[in-house]
């Protein structure tokens, strides 16, 4: 086993242990504190009914959700960064999150029921709206950025423009909502990991089980596309076609992530980036640590957001932005 493989193995081990600790932490803290010993007891089938309810119906699904959304966002970001050949690409910056958010707010604004809020029936349809919003936005960006093939910088700038336009429409609609809905929509847009019920967790995980292995299968293509479309064509890759496939893949994952987690920006940016710094740019090596990092960061942010300013619950996405934006700016200053 050579050095880089050793390093990869170690990285994955260390991250897994950290992730496990973060999981325990997130299960423990909260309005109802449950100690690690009690968690263990309950997993073996003992414990009070109230604790079991908190643990199995609230904390556990929300923990799993954070793990899944973190993974989806990190891998989606990794793909976007490779195909745009820009380390600073991220679904949040490109406007994909805003597109999903707009779809959700349109749904809330035009389906106002008697209760006028994100009620139970809405909660089933909401993810679909978010997903199609993300998809439509990505199609729009791709179409507008296409000019005799892809150009990575044009793609990012078009994304920024679309993001600005969609935000303008979004805010208009938001202002027409009732104050309560406005708050709900705002919290959602900031990424509050709202879909904390087992049914969503199951749906999300079944999609990811399909999409993640396919991404790993495409790792080689990603490596080559990262060298630039001319090199890729020279090496026998039909680059525009592969671009399209991979964009669909990236959008599918960020769309799913946004649908279940809300607009979480920067996560797709920093997780792959840190992973690349540790284990190098090869996608076969880089994708697994990136996924672990994404989960870890999101889970910690979620735990911090829920407990820092208690009783106010800060959406996890906000915490992620506050922590990652400075890192992003640091990266920006270093890139040529």
């Amino acid at each position: 086993m050579n050095r880089s493989q050793m390093k990869l193995k170690w990285t994955i081990w260390v991250l897994s242990v950290l992730l496990l600790l973060a999981c325990l932490l997130s299960l423990n803290v909260g309005v109802v504190a449950i100690s690690p010993a009690e968690v263990f007891q309950m997993l073996t089938g003992n414990g009070t009914e109230q604790q079991a309810l908190v643990l199995f119906e609230i904390r556990l699904p929300s923990m799993v959700l954070a793990l899944l959304v973190g993974t989806a966002m990190a891998i989606s970001g990794a793909i976007l960064q490779s195909i745009t050949r820009n380390e600073l690409a991220d679904p949040g910056i490109l406007g994909i999150n805003t597109g999903a958010g707009l779809a959700v707010v349109i749904y809330i604004a035009f389906s106002q029921t008697a209760t006028g809020s994100l009620s139970a029936s809405g909660a089933l349809i909401l993810p679909f709206f978010a997903f199609f919003g993300a998809l439509l936005t990505a199609v729009l960006i791709t179409v507008l950025a296409w000019k005799r093939g892809f150009h990575s910088i044009r793609l990012i700038l078009v994304g920024i423009g679309i993001n600005a336009g969609l935000s303008a429409i979004l805010i208009t609609l938001q202002l027409r909502l009732s104050p309560q809905d406005f708050m709900e929509a705002m919290v959602w847009l900031c990424g509050d990991l709202w879909a904390t019920q087992w049914q969503y967790v199951r749906t999300l995980s079944s999609w990811l089980v399909l999409l993640i292995p396919y991404t790993l299968y495409k790792a080689h293509t990603l490596n080559i596309l990262n060298l630039g479309s001319q090199v890729a064509t020279g090496l026998g890759i039909r680059s525009n076609r592969e671009y399209l496939i991979l964009i669909v893949l990236a959008v599918a994952m960020s769309g799913l992530g946004v649908a279940a987690g809300g607009g979480i920006a920067f996560l797709g940016l920093i997780a792959p980036h840190i992973a690349r710094r540790i284990v190098g740019p090869r996608h076969q090596a880089m994708l697994p640590p990136a996924a672990l990092l994404g989960s870890l960061i999101l889970l910690l942010s979620d735990t911090i957001g829920k407990n820092l300013l208690s009783p106010t619950e800060l959406p996890a996405g906000m915490v992620v932005s506050m922590v990652s934006a400075p890192y992003f700016i640091f990266l920006l200053m270093k890139t040529k």
């Binding site: 910056i93 990012i156 900031c190 906000m318 915490v319 932005s321 270093k334 890139t335």
Partner: peptide, 27 residues
């Protein structure tokens, strides 16, 4: 920052600053 300040870099700097401030604002 290092190197030339390209349009994309300036726009990204603006966006990142904006997103950072807006999360603080929303919190």
């Amino acid at each position: 920052s290092n190197g030339n300040v390209t349009p994309v870099k300036l726009s990204l700097a603006g966006i990142a600053t904006g997103m950072f401030l807006s999360s603080l604002t929303s919190s």
